[in-house]
Each structure stands twice: as C-alpha cells, then as structure tokens.
C-alpha cells in the first residue's frame, strides 16, 4: 500500500492524520461515523476507489478485526492504515469489523476466468490446499478471509507481498505462496477475482 501513497485521495490522508492525532477519541464516535473514514479508500458503495485496495464490505468479521489489530501492532505494515487504527481500541475494531462484515459484498464486475485458467487454479488449490482454510467456494470464515470476488489487482499485490514477506502478518501464507509457482498464482488471482 505504501507504493500507492502518491495516488491517494488527500481527504483520506487528512482524516487519518486527525484520527492518529487523537483529535476525536475514536471510542466516542458511533461505528457508522468511524466507518466514514474507511469509505474514502474502500468505497462509499463497497467498491474500492483503487483496485489495489481490498473489498471489505461483506468480508469476514474476524478477519477484519485481526487485520486492524495487526495494523495497530505494526505486524502488518501500512503508512495509511497504521495512523488510522492507532487510536482504536479492541472494541472499536470489533465494532468496525462487524459493521463492514454485515454489508453486502459488492460486485466488481470482474470477468469469469476462462476454462484453462480455472483448471490451472483448481490444480494449484489441489496441491496447496487453499480451500482447507478458505473453505468451499473460497468464502472464508472467522479469521480467514473471503477470496471469491476480491479485487484481482489487490490479490496480485498482496500475494506478491506475502512472497517477499513485505506483508509479514501471516508467515504461514508467505510459506504457502512461496511454494506455489508464479504461473499458478496468476491463475488463482484471475480465477478467484471472477467468482
């Protein structure tokens, strides 16, 4: 995400700075009000304003909470997210996570993958066992995220970040992504985004 700073909506950065400076205690705000901050990047309608930003509407509650927690702990690095979450307490994070998890998953209009790509993706799944955690139809549960219909560009970026360990808050995922050939990962990204 750091690489995308130049693109970012300036309003979002300002809000982040304000929250980070503790201008308004996060705990005093209603969850919907707090969630307004997120809409600047993740979208007013759940469709992120940049394709490398993940869909969080309809995402699994536990997963969103853990990511917020990890941003605060700096286990997951992001120059944008860390200031935003710095003033959030656990209850705030859980409330935000619940709020977004109850929103409908947006249709990004990403195309279905062709048959040969789908077959390659499913072959990779069979080898690595993605559905062992992400579950049937890649819907996720608990602290495991939904992948079906996620932004392809985000999947590409975060998988690459897992491989370099730039995304360091799940070394198990890094290990699995490193064990998967790049061509298989490309097929998975295309296949999953089209579900």
């Amino acid at each position: 995400m750091r690489g995308k700073l130049g693109w970012l909506n300036p309003g979002v950065v300002i809000v982040g700075v304000l929250l980070g400076a503790g201008a308004t205690p996060a705990v005093a705000q209603g969850v919907a009000e707090k969630a307004e901050v997120c809409a600047g990047c993740h979208g007013q309608d759940g469709k992120p304003v940049d394709k490398t930003i993940p869909v969080i509407w309809g995402q699994q509650l536990g997963y969103i909470y853990i990511q917020l927690r990890d941003f605060k702990r700096a286990d997951r690095k992001s120059g944008i997210m860390q200031p935003i979450v710095s003033s959030l307490e656990k209850d705030d994070m859980l409330a935000l996570a619940e709020y977004f998890s109850k929103k409908p998953w947006p249709d990004l209009g990403q195309p279905r993958s062709p048959k040969d790509v789908a077959e390659r993706a499913l072959s990779a799944d069979r080898s690595v066992g993605c559905t062992g955690c992400h579950l049937d139809q890649f819907q996720g549960d608990g602290t495991v995220p939904r992948l079906a219909g996620q932004s392809r560009e985000y999947l590409t970026k975060t998988i690459a970040d897992f491989r370099t360990r730039a995304r360091g808050n799940n070394p198990g995922m890094s290990d699995l992504m490193l064990a998967t050939p790049p061509d298989d990962l490309a097929a998975l990204e295309e296949f999953l985004s089209g579900l």
């Binding site: 702990r73 286990d75 072959s123 069979r126 080898s127 690595v128 066992g129 955690c133 360990r165 808050n169 799940n170 070394p171 198990g172 995922m173 890094s174 290990d175 699995l176 490193l178 064990a179 998967t180």
Partner: peptide, 20 residues
Amino acid sequence: ENSPYPNGKLWLGGAFTAIP
C-alpha cells in the same frame, strides 16, 4: 522456510504440497 513466532497466526515453517 524460516520465520519468527507470528502471534497466533498460521506457522508452518514451510509447506507440504501434493505433487500435481
């Protein structure tokens, strides 16, 4: 693979993969 304890996250220390 080698990585430090990840605070309750998946910690496989590598991967076992079925051979296609």
